[in-house]
């Protein structure tokens, strides 16, 4: 299935990752790698374990076995705060903003582990407002009162405030109108062009494949296909199961 890793180039390497919730095992030996600077897509139907996988990367869900290596060092036992500090930030499914905080306070929460001075913070805030000018206009507004698209921008901006090397985005397009999805995809590309690698988990396979150079297909907690998105788009199984062609 997956090709042997050409080590050195990989930002993230996941080997034989198993785990789940209490007694229920969800992931059955995930093998996956992310190369520096790439956009990688993970696709699959509902409930196959995509979110579970991201939560294990972030350290909020413990793994049963297997290894996660980031920039050549194991991520074991460093906790979610350690993972963020090492340069992985997570834009969760459903955005999960702090609804009764302002947009700016949400962004500040993204930089929580970095413990910056006010001056350093304002540099990073300006960077995020540079990506998302709409957020700048709404910096004082309560995050919960914004539209879905703006909330997704805020969630991504909050993730960027940690200055990640790898950004995990769970369901970028969920519940958003096509025009907004297109706009958000533009932002994701822009962020990637600044050197941030991205794992994009998506229901919408076409959107994901358009952005990503490589993709993994999950099925019941396993990787069943992996490869470049161009190849996968031609694959009859993928066409049949995920593109409805």
């Amino acid at each position: 299935m997956t090709t042997a890793p050409d080590s050195g180039l990989n930002l993230l390497e996941v080997r034989d990752l198993k785990g789940g919730y209490n007694e229920v095992q969800i992931l059955w030996g995930i093998e996956l790698e992310v190369k520096s600077g790439e956009i990688l897509a993970i696709v699959g139907s509902n409930g196959v374990g995509k979110t579970t996988f991201l939560r294990m990367l972030s350290g909020v869900l413990p793994c049963q076995s297997g290894t996660i290596t980031f920039e050549g060092e194991a991520l074991d036992g460093i906790g979610p705060d350690g993972v963020v500090a090492r340069g992985i930030s997570h834009v969760p499914e459903g955005r999960r903003l702090f609804a009764s905080m302002s947009v700016e306070e949400n962004l500040l929460m993204g930089a929580y582990v970095r413990n910056l001075t006010d001056q350093e913070l304002s540099v990073d805030l300006d960077r995020v407002y540079g990506f998302f000018p709409q957020l700048a206009e709404r910096r004082g507004q309560l995050a919960g009162s914004m539209s879905g698209g703006e909330q997704q921008m805020c969630a991504i901006g909050r993730g960027l405030m940690a200055r990640p090397k790898l950004l995990l985005i769970d369901e970028l397009s969920l519940g958003l109108a096509p025009r907004l999805v297109e706009e958000l995809c533009g932002f994701v590309k822009q962020i990637n062009e600044e050197g941030v690698a991205i794992i994009l988990v998506e229901q919408d396979v076409l959107t994901a494949f358009e952005l990503a150079s490589r993709a993994y297909v999950f099925e019941s907690g396993r990787v069943v296909m992996a490869g470049s998105t161009d190849e996968l788009l031609e694959n009859p199984e993928v066409k049949n199961a995920y593109l409805g062609i």
């Binding site: 979610p80 929460m109 909050r158």
Partner: peptide
């Protein structure tokens, strides 16, 4: 103080931000 409020509003999300 902000982290305390964030934890109150969404514990899971606060944890993802690296709040202990």
């Amino acid at each position: 103080g902000r982290a305390i409020r964030a934890t109150r509003m969404d514990l899971d999300s606060a944890q993802l931000m690296g709040v202990n």
